[in-house]
Amino acid sequence: MTQDLSRSQRLLRGTGLALAVALAFSGCAEMGPREKGTATGAAIGAIGGAVISSATGGKAGTGALIGGAVGAVAGNIWSKRMEDKRKQMEAATQGTGVEVTRTADNRLQVNVPSDISFDVGRSALRPALHPVLDKFASGLDGSMKVMIVGHTDSTGSDAINDPLSVDRAASVRDYLVMRGVSPTRISIEGKGSHQPIADNSTAEGRARNRRVEIFLSEAQPKG
């Protein structure tokens, strides 16, 4: 009798999990870009909540509701403004080697390689980077936040590369501030040579690793 009851409980939990997943994603197809960012966060939270609740013996539906609420609050959104900015940056950087992408967490990433950003061992901006930053700075509203991350290749020691990467990020920040972006909306970080995207044993790879990444995000509005 106890075995049959346990089997029934597992079946109900599995059904609750499936229902939570279905409910979480059912409305996404009809949503616009802004709502989809929120809905995706809610969906991921719902699934996580349902899985955790089911695994720990709780009610999957209740866990999904709690997880969905957390996911919706935590996620960035991808609004029409963000999509317009992506298109603007793609047009502005065409043929420059700058990569413009939308990240999995709904941020706009602008990856600027060394040939238009910085000379080897220097943190001063090259003139070729100015038009890119001018376009980036234009049209940003108060809800958008900027994160700038500087990188170096593996030439030299961490004692040199770590502060150099921070200085490069700071140079980009200072230029954006001169173009009217509030410094309170900008954060910077330096990764030194610790996050390479190419092989440091080749000159081409080292050039790719000497870069600055600029992230633009629009947080979920508080309601």
Rank of each mutant, 00 (worst) to 15 (best):
Q3H: 12
L5R: 11
S6I: 13
R7T: 05
S8G: 09
Q9D: 07
R10L: 12
L12F: 13
L12V: 11
L12A: 14
G14E: 01
G14V: 08
T15A: 15
L19W: 11
V21K: 01
V21P: 02
A22N: 03
A24Q: 00
S26P: 00
A29P: 01
G37W: 09
T38E: 00
T38R: 08
T40C: 06
G41F: 04
A43H: 00
G45N: 04
G48H: 06
G49H: 08
A50P: 04
A50G: 12
S53Q: 00
S53D: 01
A55G: 11
T56E: 11
T62I: 14
A64P: 05
A64F: 05
I66M: 13
G67E: 02
G67C: 08
G68C: 03
A69N: 04
V70S: 02
V73S: 07
A74G: 01
A74M: 14
N76R: 09
S79D: 07
R81G: 14
R81T: 13
M82Q: 14
R86P: 00
R86W: 05
R86F: 07
M89S: 10
A92N: 08
A92Q: 07
A92K: 13
A92W: 07
Q94L: 14
T96V: 09
G97A: 07
G97W: 02
A104S: 15
D105Y: 06
L108H: 09
L108C: 08
L108T: 06
Q109H: 06
N111Q: 12
V112A: 12
P113N: 07
P113Q: 11
S114L: 05
S117Y: 05
R122C: 08
A124I: 10
R126K: 15
D134C: 06
A137G: 09
L140Y: 04
D141C: 04
S143H: 10
K145R: 14
V146P: 11
I148L: 08
G150D: 05
H151L: 02
T155A: 11
T155Q: 13
D158F: 09
I160M: 14
I160Q: 15
N161W: 07
N161V: 05
N161R: 15
N161E: 02
D162A: 13
A169T: 09
S171M: 03
S182C: 02
S182H: 02
T184I: 12
R185T: 11
R185L: 14
I186R: 01
S187Q: 13
K191R: 15
G192C: 10
H194S: 15
P196Y: 07
P196R: 04
D199C: 06
S201V: 09
T202M: 07
N209Y: 02
N209T: 01
R210L: 15
I214W: 01
L216E: 00
L216Q: 00
P221F: 04
